[in-house]
Design a protein around this nucleic acid. Structure first.
Length: 560
RNA sequence: UGGGGCGUGGCCAAGCUGGUAAGGCAAUGGACUUUGAAUCCAUGUAUCGCACGUUCGAGUCGUGCCGCCCCAGCCA
């Protein structure tokens, strides 16, 4: 394998980075950063940004800083800082042993602000927020200068210092860059650099009464850390001129900002605001609900960091806004779990089957492989007895065409055990099937007969006398449409919420080998899907989450 | 009617200095099968948004047009 094959395929960002290395633009260095704001939990969209930020650094022997962009104390909390660190670690990204905080640079940023004031490139504006908006103009009309735009350097300096000292009420004044109120790029119409906020900061406490705006702060943070490539999403494309302007005005080290398209997934919403609503309005059980696209949700759902990395790798990096089919993500988990998940038998919706010709109190143990294609994963002993449970859907009193599971008079194989033939159906007074009677063929022991006859159906089972009770949580998409935002006028994505995104199966029966399972353990429940043990599992109470179902070609046949 | 981006098969996405369209997912057949899983084999007529133009030759260059996304927070 050549070195190239071990690297992520070249995308336009890597090509630009390679060019900069070739020309020694930054002395051949590559240093990126992942700058989350600690005001929420990370989701798979952030995972893409991280794959790029950390991935580029790794590919070129550089570094990537984990930096909290904590410039707005009103929204940020330490709780999020801890959660984000945990998630970044979980994904396995290497951020060295230093965690960076924008707030550590507040003194330096402030000094630079005074420099801009002294250079006549920043001024204190007394206009109200509403007035500033009015003066800004519109997309098609230029803005106009604030009456405070031409204050003297001395007055600006004095006012700025008093702003910092906390002499003025919140919102009464701002520091603005003096650029061009007529710029076609609205970001350049004298952007606000500092606003007055009297709120304690999670790290600096009550030291500050003014806090820097993103555009002013971000480039400075990058510059201070010696970042070479500041990778961000398309939304910042027209902020780049401003990023460049501040750095040039200050005459300090100047990184290159490059933008890429963020990740969008079908059946998924990824905006913090929407995710927050799902949680607050109780549509999910929390940020780590297995239906959530948050990293915590995916983790609890049974996804691995490797799967997420593989998925992101397949998605690629480009500048076109796109929506990735969630089927690709599911393909990635299935591929991974098919390799590593040991098989187990679990009957999700049990139907009792009495094997009438099987000795009353006999128990046999069958040696069942943990993985059909991987003998090295070993085998396990699965008990078999006279009464077993099979899946309700594996029996049809009046079998549909092409249905080749159990039906009256029909013979099927119980995986790894025996062939059984249904000889009777027991119903309750309402006509519901409550039990089946069957006979087994002793010659089919182990799942095959000497005469080599074939059975069309093979189903899974669990011995009633040995089964463990379990709760199985079946998950489906949170939304019923590929595009959750595809709603009638006046409605929002809540209109597409899937009422059946969580279906709890409280009476599942699983094989006894699952007794000691620990949260996070993953299995393939044969013929059903991949499942993982939920943290809600406790002594005497097993809880499993569906990670993803197996491909089901029978379901397709049925639909036709 | 301002500015910034993007537009390659159903969904992503390669395509570097022009030479005549990778790959993956999805879908569809079939083989195999003690998971209707996995695996294997096979299947795509893509007006490369459109139109002119340059050229022996354009997805790649030029011009014009169309469509979609983003920007008017003292959020990031």
């Amino acid at each position: 394998m050549t070195e190239n094959e071990t690297m992520t395929p070249r995308d336009f960002i890597r090509m630009a980075v390679e060019e900069d290395i070739r020309t020694s633009r930054f002395g051949g260095r590559v240093h990126t950063r992942f700058p989350p704001e600690p005001n929420g939990y990370l989701h798979i969209g952030h995972a893409k940004a991280m794959a790029i930020d950390f991935g580029v650094a790794k590919d070129y022997g550089g570094k990537c800083n984990l930096r909290f962009d904590d410039t707005n104390p009103a929204k940020e909390e330490d709780e999020y800082v801890q959660a984000i660190i945990e998630d970044v670690r979980w994904l396995g990204h290497d951020f060295g042993d230093t965690i960076f905080y924008a707030s550590d640079y507040f003194d330096q940023m402030y000094a630079w602000a005074e420099q801009l004031v002294r250079q006549g490139q920043a001024y204190v504006d007394d206009l109200s927020a509403d007035e500033i908006r009015e003066y800004r103009g519109t997309l098609t009309e230029p803005g106009k200068n604030s009456p405070y735009r031409d204050r003297s350097v001395e007055e600006n300096l004095d006012l700025l210092r008093r702003m910092r000292a906390g002499e003025f009420p919140a919102g009464s004044r701002v520091l603005r860059a003096k650029i061009d109120m007529a710029s076609p790029n609205i970001n350049l119409r004298d952007p606000v650099m500092y606003r007055i906020v009297h709120a304690p900061h999670h790290r600096t406490g009550d030291k500050w009464h003014i806090y820097p705006m993103y555009d002013w702060a971000h480039g400075l943070e990058d510059s201070i850390e010696g970042i070479t490539h500041s990778l961000c999403d398309l939304g910042y494309e027209d902020h780049r001129p401003l990023y460049d302007w501040f750095l040039d005005a200050l005459g300090i080290y100047h990184p290159q900002q490059i933008e890429f398209a963020r990740l969008n997934l079908t059946r998924t919403v990824l905006s913090k605001r929407f995710l927050l609503r799902l949680v607050n309005e109780g549509h999910v059980r929390g940020w780590d609900d297995p239906r959530m696209p948050t990293l915590r949700g995916l983790r609890r759902r049974g996804y691995t960091p490797e799967v997420i990395a593989d998925f992101l790798n397949r998605v690629g990096v480009a500048k076109a806004n796109s929506v990735v089919d969630i089927a690709l993500l599911e393909y990635c988990v299935r591929e991974d779990l098919n390799e590593r998940a040991p098989r187990a038998m679990a009957v999700l919706e049990p139907l009792k089957v009495v094997i009438t010709n099987y000795p009353e109190d006999q128990v046999e143990y069958f040696d069942v492989p943990n993985h059909p294609q991987k003998p090295e994963m070993g085998t396990r002993q699965v008990p078999f007895s006279r009464v077993v449970y099979i899946e309700q859907e594996d029996f049809m009193e009046e079998p549909a065409p092409k249905y080749f599971r159990l039906a009256p008079g029909r013979e099927v194989r119980l995986v790894g055990a025996y062939y059984i033939t249904c000889i009777g159906v027991v119903k309750d007074t309402n006509g519901n099937i409550v039990e089946l009677h069957a006979t087994y063929d002793p010659a089919s022991r182990g799942g095959a007969t000497p005469d080599g006859r074939k059975v069309k159906g093979t189903i899974h089972w669990v011995s009633a006398a040995h089964a463990l009770d379990a709760e199985v949580r079946m998950y489906d998409y949170l939304f019923t449409k590929d595009d959750p935002g595809d709603v009638p006028e006046g409605q929002d994505f809540m209109a597409n919420l899937n009422p059946a995104s969580l279906v709890i199966l409280p009476n599942a029966k699983v094989e006894p080998n699952l007794a000691g399972t620990q949260p996070g353990d993953r299995y393939q429940f044969m013929r059903k899907g991949y499942f993982c043990t939920d943290p809600d599992t406790a002594e005497g109470k097993l809880v499993f989450n569906l990670t993803v179902s197996l491909r089901d070609s029978w379901a397709k046949v049925q639909q036709q």
